[in-house]
Design a protein around this nucleic acid. Structure first.
Length: 317
DNA sequence: TTAAGTCAAGCAAAT
DNA sequence: ATTTGCTTGACTTAA
């Protein structure tokens, strides 16, 4: 008996799909899946040949680890995963840097990335990157801006290969004041390739940029806003979480919005509310977010997949 | 095997 | 001046 099409079924599906897509960040605790790293000071002491072999091995292993972690996410019904920026260590380093196609097993690395992309696509595991703190598009130091662009373009290239649709960055520097700094940010964003720019998203932080501070950048560039509820509670910029949410949602257009959340390690009344707790306190999830029909929320918690599973299974989680 | 020292990279705020 | 925190301590070597 085929299911009847119609308003009732659509309403049921809307309810069904209204639950938040909770995302895992970078690492897992309860499976033997490890991403390797490398340091420049070590590899630079090796011969060119040994260095290439060493980095080649790490790239191969990390591409395999990505496949494994996506299978793992699928098995646990975790449908978003943030890929560590260090998946290809030193790739954009001025001395030790390399390109995948130049590695001895570059073809295999690329094939593994394609497999990873297929797993994510078939399992509906949304992929993102979060370039780390050294990527500052509006630094007052030109060399920092240039290396930031290089890193972002590289991550965009990997993102394109595996089907990741979000590269999340913070507002960055505030040198010269917020207005001046945001115009530098806009100017640099306009220099990015289409590949990087269509994936870029900017996130409010807990020191410098509130959600409202970033809105002019979103409006000027079309880059969407990732609202971090934890950061927002530290720096509200005068907006309620509901107002900030509405603004952020508007920047995503037809795309599924992407937000972040975590709980303070020492509670909201502790000395410093910024360090992250092992788990997400369900009370910290804005009620307002629950009504959003489609939404990805990365869980930034030290307990990794245990925290993601806990909030997914929490009452009204 | 373990422990100590090291590691490419930015920035702001607290101490 | 130094430390802390950020999505995450991991890597390397000496003992």
């Amino acid at each position: 008996m085929p299911k009847p099409r119609g308003k009732q079924r659509d309403a049921d599906e809307a309810v069904q799909h209204s639950s938040i897509r909770w995302g895992l960040c970078c690492l897992v605790l309860d499976a033997p899946i490890k991403f390797r790293a490398a340091t420049h000071s070590y590899v630079w002491r090796l011969s060119a040949e040994d260095r290439q072999a060493y980095l080649n091995g790490i790239a191969l292993e990390n591409a395999k680890a990505l496949i494994d972690v996506l299978h793992y996410c699928k098995a646990l019904d975790i449908r978003a995963f943030r890929i560590s920026s260090g998946i290809f260590p030193l790739a954009t380093h001025p001395l030790s840097g390399y390109r995948i196609e130049d590695l001895p097993d570059g073809d295999d690395v690329r094939r593994r990335l394609e497999v990873a992309g297929d797993i994510a696509a078939r399992g509906d595991v949304r992929l993102s990157f979060h370039p780390d703190q050294f990527v500052v598009l509006n630094s007052v130091r030109p060399e920092v801006v240039e290396s930031s662009i290089r890193e972002l373009e590289w991550q965009a290239e990997v993102a394109e290969m595996i089907g990741a649709d979000v590269l999340c960055l913070h507002g960055g520097s505030t040198q010269g004041g917020t207005e001046e700094a945001t115009s530098r940010l806009i100017a640099t964003i306009e220099r990015l390739s289409t590949r990087a720019r269509i994936r870029l998203a900017i996130e409010n932080d807990d020191r410098c940029y509130s959600a409202i501070d970033l809105l002019p950048v979103c409006l000027a560039t079309g880059v969407p806003l990732i609202l971090d509820a934890h950061h927002h509670r530290v720096i509200t910029g005068g907006l309620s979480i509901e107002e900030a949410t509405d603004w952020a949602l508007a920047t995503w257009g037809d795309r599924e919005p992407y937000f972040h959340i975590s709980s303070p390690r020492d509670g909201w009344k502790g000395n410093d509310p910024r360090p992250h707790a092992d788990y997400l306190d369900p009370h910290d999830v804005p009620e307002y977010w629950r009504a959003i029909p489609k939404l990805t929320v990365d869980v930034e918690a030290k307990a990794k997949e245990r925290a993601v599973l806990a909030i997914s299974r929490a009452p009204s989680g």
